[in-house]
Design a protein around this nucleic acid. Structure first.
Lengths: 215, 215
DNA sequence: CTCGTTTTGTTCTTCCGTTCACAAACTCCT
DNA sequence: AGGAGTTTGTGAACGGAAGAACAAAACGAG
């Protein structure tokens, strides 16, 4: 379930505040989901609550982390060390949430040996060796769109089975390989769509072809 | 619909390739969605196709852009010019897809007057003035998690009605304000979840409480 | 020990999105 | 002009997620 990480983060916040127990209503309020839905999600993992009391924050947190698979650290490679790749390499949230950046790769020779976030930027051709040596199964693509498919192909061939793609392209990968896409422009466009609706409740969207034909 | 921007991007690619007409099957293949779903999405906007022929790429592209609201440029402010804010400010995709970054704000005085992506980083307190002067309705939050809610409150008070949040927090905003959240760790955790399932098809997930009780 | 209160786990209903399948409509070829 | 071949637009069936509602279980007070 895609909501598990959200619960996990909320529970971590509760742990930091020293809260030992919480009800499904509390968690629902903290995460912005319906409490019935939340209980159903949690019951899917097992019966980890106590009726009349609620959930033990620390215990539930561990169970969710185990379910997601972030009780261990996952090695990750980042390909494409431009602006975004730089930001990702420096993002401390990865490390604290179960991920370890083991290598930064870039095709441009002028970036090689540059140190980013304490790691040396290495040639893209080192990909296969690194994936094999570090047992990497997750790759991050932060390259321009034109390079993304090639990078993905190489990753898959090297043994990567999960890809997080920041390039604005749809990647085609074989079955068994998971791809998730983060597209910044698309997020903004979705906001713009709703924004436009707020400004123009009815059909103030300019002429439609139908109207042109009718007129 | 959240898929419209995906279609828009695919159509732009087709335009660049000089393709004038495409069928729903073509577009579906390019975007990775079912062709029937795609046709239904498009028919929701109007009858813009020709049976037996397909869709006029350029015409459809314009219609979708108009529906989304990106025929005009939307002014955007970015708050929090750290690693991520820097990358966002430098991201050329915003400009080419209907958005114009009008201001970069940061609370830290040592960053002020620094030039990022051709814009001066300004004090966060300039927010209200900028929002009013430039008619900004979309704000981007790239601050640490602890500051995000405060920034959101100030944005809303200043008149921003759509927020793109990169901080790992759930924001609470009044009705009428849209929030979209991009959380990099959560995306990776979702991949890790599937990755774990691939590695351990059955219950190799360590002891569950039930098993402990039984044993 | 019993009763009332709280909260989980689950069932049942409702609703929305997806997909299938097909008729209508358009083009091209003969 | 007519028929064969495409492709859209949409009605109907399907599936699955979301929410409401309730029974089971734990705790605490008397």
């Amino acid at each position: 379930m895609a909501r598990l990480p959200i619960y996990l983060r909320a529970l971590t916040t509760l742990v930091e505040r020293g809260i030992g127990t919480c009800s499904s209503e509390d968690l629902a309020a903290a995460t912005g989901v319906n409490s019935a839905k939340l209980r159903k999600d949690l019951s899917y993992l097992g019966s980890y609550g106590t009726r009349g009391v609620g959930y033990d924050v620390d215990y539930l947190r561990y169970q969710i982390a185990r379910e997601i698979g972030v009780t261990q650290d996952w090695p990750v490679v980042i390909v494409g060390i431009g602006n975004l790749g730089n930001a990702l390499a420096n993002y401390s949230g990865f490390r604290s949430r179960g991920f370890r950046v083991v290598a930064l790769l870039d095709a441009a020779p002028e970036r090689h040996a540059e140190a980013v976030a304490g790691l040396e930027v290495r040639p893209f051709d080192d990909l296969e060796q690194i994936v094999a040596a570090e047992a990497v199964s997750i790759g991050v693509i932060a390259t321009p769109a034109v390079a993304a498919q090639d990078v993905a192909d190489r990753m898959v061939a090297a043994g990567v089975t999960s890809i997080l793609n920041f390039a604005p392209t749809v990647l085609s990968v074989p079955d068994g390989v998971d791809v998730r896409k983060v597209d910044l422009s698309i997020e903004l466009q979705i906001l713009a769509y709703h924004e436009q609706r707020k400004a123009a409740p009815d059909g103030e969207l300019g002429p439609t072809p139908d109207q042109e034909v009718i007129a």
